[in-house]
Amino acid sequence: MAELASLQAVIRACLDGVAATQTLSPRQWQVCHHILDCRTAALGGFALSCDQCEAEALCYHACRDRHCPRCQHRASLDWCERQRAALLPVTYHHVVFTLPSTLNGWIEVHPKELYHLLFETVWATLSAFGSDPKRLDGQLGMTAVLHTWGQTLTRHVHLHCLVPGGAVSASGEWHPAKSTYLFPVRALSRHVRGGFVSRLRQAVEAGRLPRLSDSREIERVLNTLMGLEWVVYSKPCLVHTETVVDYLGRYSHRTALSDSRLVSFDGQAVELSYKDYRDGDRRKVMTLSGTELLRRFLLHVLPKGFMRVRHFGFLANRCRARRLPEIRTAIAAPTATVSPAQEGSEELTRTFDGYPCPTCRTGRLRVRAALAPKRRDGG
């Protein structure tokens, strides 16, 4: 009988096979075991009973790991609500910076350092363009979300940036960008390439990338990077900026893979749904072995504690509450208020009164007893 198509089922069936062919980091082992335990007796939970028909059910705790496809849905929705509340009535620009695949080997051994350099370099680039007196002559704002995957789960490191179309000057004036234009992508590409390679070289010389020891190979890679065209994408959000916020929000607290993309799993082979951007965004299905799917998924396990969503400029957490009202005043925009959806979710949390009973459909499932965690089989 075929296994239920889920990442949890793939890990259960294929983790030993992957571990036999490659060395997994402690962090990768931890993520796999979190997903295996998610919503099972291993984490404990509650025994529920209906107050009308006395039907019983079990509700197990979630692992809340940001790599788990079954968790963090509410956190993502709340994040989107907060970002919508901070939107300014200006044209936003969706800008994407992609690292060349030449760096994939270095990312394998030093992911935290290279991801951090990507954030640092992208902000330095956009900030320099924004502060240029010949351009916007002020401070930009930016929200950036790190993605490390492509549709087929191969390593494809890129940074999605949502940038308000304008900058605030030192005197508090708002300098708007052209409605369909922020900065030239070719100039952005050149600047981010030079800045990133320079920072890489400094990191190597400072000993922050100790697993890179072959000086000739390091020099070859750095020279290769300088000879490549770095991909930068920029598009104005003339309408419905909220859709970009929602797109970023889907992966603000989760990563790489959702169970809905797994079409089937027979215990060995997995059918993976993906969008082929080179073929008119057509939806296709590819077949992978379970071990190969899991190997690709583990490429995107982030270092523990790494912040993959960051805010910069006047959107930085330390000054956002102060700067946004000032900017709204400068552009004569109304003050943002908490959305009805957010207020409703907070009210729902305060008045939660059990789950609807799926048996009688009239009663409520209420907690009857707490269930202690049980040791996972084989653990």
Rank of each mutant, 00 (worst) to 15 (best):
M1E: 15
L4I: 14
L7G: 01
Q8T: 01
R12T: 00
L15N: 03
L15P: 02
V31W: 08
I35H: 05
A42R: 07
S49W: 01
R64Q: 14
D78G: 06
T91E: 00
L99M: 15
T102Y: 00
G105N: 09
H110P: 06
L117C: 12
F119H: 08
E120F: 04
A128W: 02
L140Q: 09
G141N: 04
V145I: 15
C161Q: 06
G165M: 05
S169W: 13
A170Q: 14
E173W: 01
S179E: 14
A187M: 09
G194H: 09
S198G: 12
R201E: 15
Q202T: 08
V204Q: 11
S213D: 08
S215R: 11
R216S: 10
R220V: 08
V221C: 12
L225G: 07
G227L: 08
T255F: 01
T255D: 02
A256F: 08
F265Y: 14
K284W: 03
M286K: 15
S289C: 01
S289M: 01
E292Q: 11
F297Y: 13
V301C: 04
F312G: 07
F314E: 00
L315N: 05
C319T: 13
L324Q: 07
L324Y: 03
I327Q: 06
T329N: 07
E346Q: 10
L348M: 12
T351S: 14
L365V: 10
R368P: 00
K374I: 01
K374D: 00
R376C: 04
